[in-house]
Design a protein around this nucleic acid. Structure first.
Lengths: 124, 124
DNA sequence: TATTCCATGTTAGGAAACCTTACATGAACT
DNA sequence: AGTTCATGTAAGGTTTCCTAACATGGAATA
């Protein structure tokens, strides 16, 4: 399974994205308001983020820390996402999850070790 | 970030693990009771699973479908985590591939995907 | 300087998701 | 028939997340 697919699957809840990005929920929702990310929603309306969303958030964070404002960031992202456009077939969600499972099955994992809360942002 | 760390990070909530594994919450908790997985907990006592946990759950599921009971599965996992043995072939590879094939034929998940058309075209 | 704007904090009220515990059930053994 | 096993289900409680609204402090601007 390709890396890209893995990275676009909506796997992560708000809680964990806050930890991975060290952003507040308010900030994350604000950036969504500005259409910089568009997280998936569960049936119950909970946001579910992909790893790509996390990447984007980290990028936004970085730009803001550099003094860029939302308007500029928006333009920057607009340019980034512009060029490619074709009409391709869509894959169903179930297919995506199937692919995900496949990938996981192939992994040869041997041992677990637990990671303490708070370690995540350091490693990401 | 190393692969090991990626796979042991507790990123996933119950909800998404149920979807990835097609197991019920009851089942997942039951396997935890039997110490086959030990998901992390948030401060509020919510389970957070790693990709390795998902992997383990899929393995359990397969064994159960093959008619194995928990006692045997436990022993199997115990052996697996023992120091490496030189002779015996790894049967889980072919088994895993079998599950994969089975699951490919399956479908119908509940959640709609946030993955936009275009993201997958490069890979299919 | 005063005003407005921007990015974020905070609070409130409600809903969804998850928790544990306990009891129910049907299939497979004994 | 009784027991065990794996799972379902229900109840009652807690945590996490939601939206909406208002608050705020610093920057930009009039």
């Amino acid at each position: 399974m390709s890396r890209e697919i893995r990275r676009t699957m909506p796997l992560l809840s708000m809680n964990i994205v806050m930890q991975l990005t060290e952003l507040s929920a308010r900030q994350i929702r604000y950036y969504e308001e500005h259409h910089l990310i568009e997280p998936h929603r569960t049936e119950g309306n909970r946001r579910m983020f992909s790893l790509n969303d996390v990447d984007t958030l980290l990028e936004i964070k970085d730009y803001l820390e550099q003094g860029m404002n939302m308007a500029k960031i928006k333009k920057l992202f607009a340019k980034k996402n512009e060029p490619v456009s074709t009409d391709e077939p869509n894959l169903s969600d179930s297919e995506l999850r199937r692919i995900m499972r496949e990938e996981m099955l192939q992994a040869q994992r041997m041992q677990k070790s637990s990671i303490r809360r708070g370690d995540l942002s350091r490693f990401y």
